[in-house]
Design a protein around this nucleic acid. Structure first.
Lengths: 207, 207
DNA sequence: CCTATCTCGGAACGGTCATTCCAAGATAGG
DNA sequence: CCTATCTTGGAATGACCGTTCCGAGATAGG
């Protein structure tokens, strides 16, 4: 009987994500979202409740579309430290070049705004953080099996260091940090994890 | 001849800092600042120009009052790696305990907001970053002279890693990260810098 | 075709935003 | 004391905020 929705909420959400991502939550008005999506106020409110719900849905969509695929790829990557280097190289490239350069990471940005007081948002941030850490941990485990790591490296804390570093990279990219600088920094953070010389995989290296 | 200002701008600015720090720039209205400072709109505008000028002055004051002293102490600290550990321990404690727990760092927060597009703010952020890096570099140089560092450690990039990590710590503290977790992360980042055993410094030091 | 039920566009609402303006108060040289 | 000059408190302004409401349009079962 009833009428059916005239738009695809996920597609609309992709537009909403871009606006919130670029401008931040408090700076973005509903009118800007109406303009960006082409969907009227009524429909946005009917679908997402209110601005907070809209932002929460957008952040969730961002994680699903941008973070999760990258983390999954990192988790499953077979080349250990090289995969981690590639992960950071891709991250830095996207933060510093192209259309969305200077936008930073929407999740990282959410940490610094008032939205992170919201329990719903807080949950998304924590889940994102855990997922990032375990993806890094998985890649480090692969590296360990490949004999790329010093035996002294603790996988959990090393993953925590790299995850925390990633937030710093995202943040500094917003202030115009140079890609080369960020790359050098990441490289310096990875260097001490690396086994001194080539090691025979599966069996560990001397000392 | 003229009347004289009835308040001390720096004292007022300290109140303004607290509001901007806790609530962020876009979320804070002028009325909130009038209430917090006890100074009327007219006087705030006459003294600081507009909201952007007020925020810029507050951020500058924050750096002067909070960042600079901590960085100066770190720069001049005599105990090398121990001083760096103490710097991070103090940072984490202030971020996670007491009245201002969960506020994060005002400079770190400024990175993620729309205010970092403002050239004036951008300059403050860059200067803050350079100062933080060189303070860490100075402390690392001290550690190096004390023989606490592996010879392979590059002071500049190691300082960059630790500075970037500090931003991550500040960010995650806002989302309720536990102090112990952050401490363990920092500790894991410092561990690989440390010389394997006690080394004989050029001047030896006990411990 | 008819009608119940939902969606949609846009107007309308009260509140708050940053900013300006003005009259009253304070100051200090004459 | 007088007055020129600045500061101050508070009202006024126009724009925009998030949200609600309503009439019109679309849909699909009967």
């Amino acid at each position: 009987m009833p009428d059916i929705k005239h738009f695809n909420p996920d597609v609309v959400l992709d537009d909403v994500v871009r606006v919130f991502w670029r401008q931040g939550m408090p700076t973005t008005g509903i009118q800007a979202l109406v303009t960006a999506t082409g969907v009227s106020r009524s429909s946005l409110y009917a679908t997402f409740g209110n601005k907070d719900g809209l932002y929460a849905a957008a952040l969730s969509r961002y994680i699903e579309q941008h973070s999760t695929p990258a983390f999954a790829q990192l988790s499953a990557a077979p080349s250990g430290l090289t995969s981690i280097e590639e992960f950071f190289a891709g991250l830095i490239h996207i933060r510093c070049h192209g259309e969305i350069a200077g936008w930073g990471c929407m999740v990282t940005n959410a940490h610094a705004g008032p939205e992170c007081s919201d329990p719903t948002i807080r949950t998304l941030l924590d889940e994102h953080h855990r997922t990032l850490e375990s993806a890094l941990r998985a890649a480090l485990a692969t590296a360990s099996h490949l004999g790329q790591l010093r035996p002294s490296v603790d996988l959990d804390t090393a993953a925590a260091v790299l995850a925390t570093l990633a937030y710093g990279v995202n943040l500094r990219s917003r202030a115009g940090a140079e890609a080369e600088t960020l790359t050098a920094t990441v490289s310096a953070a990875l260097a001490p994890l690396r086994a001194r010389h080539r090691a025979t995989p599966q069996e560990e290296s001397p000392t």
